[in-house]
């Protein structure tokens, strides 16, 4: 069997549930051709969000901009970030195909409590993501 056949999203979702929240994601990089395999919010952020919003959450500007996630008041409630992560908007690609429900919740909660954001209440949950998906 090929590795990419083994790592179906369903099997993968099971492994995420079993993983400890403090898992070290450094070995998960580039593990699968089709989906992200990092499990922590920080690990997922560094593996996909940082590409555009940058490692420090400051965003970037060229002919147009990637908005800063740092000190961003639109993150007060989790729903907006969950929706954008799943479905995208304008230049933001939909990530529903590469992240499962647990991963979306984890990365949204990470962003809402990092880069100067302080929204620990009302965290995103996998159930909430599943309903928005």
């Amino acid at each position: 069997m090929r590795m990419h056949q083994l790592f179906t999203p369903v099997l993968f979702a099971t492994s995420v549930v079993a993983a400890p929240a403090f898992a070290d994601d450094s070995a998960a990089w580039f593990e699968n051709r089709n989906v992200l395999t990092q499990e922590t919010g920080e690990g997922i952020y560094n593996a996909v969000c940082a590409g555009c919003h940058m490692p420090d959450g400051q965003g970037a500007t060229g002919a147009a901009s990637y908005p800063a996630l740092a000190d961003n008041p639109t993150l007060e409630y989790p729903e907006y970030a969950v929706m954008l992560t799943l479905h995208g908007q304008a230049a933001m690609p939909p990530l529903r195909g590469v992240l499962n429900d647990e991963q979306v919740a984890a990365v949204v909660n990470y962003i809402r409590t990092s880069f100067g954001n302080n929204y620990p209440d009302d965290p995103a949950t996998a159930e909430m993501v599943a309903q928005t998906r």
Partner: peptide
């Protein structure tokens, strides 16, 4: 492309080349 490209994009250029 896809998941691989997201991860490649998120690391620094020297690291992309090294990997």
């Amino acid at each position: 492309w896809g998941a691989l490209a997201y991860q490649y994009s998120s690391i620094e250029p020297e690291d992309r080349v090294r990997r």
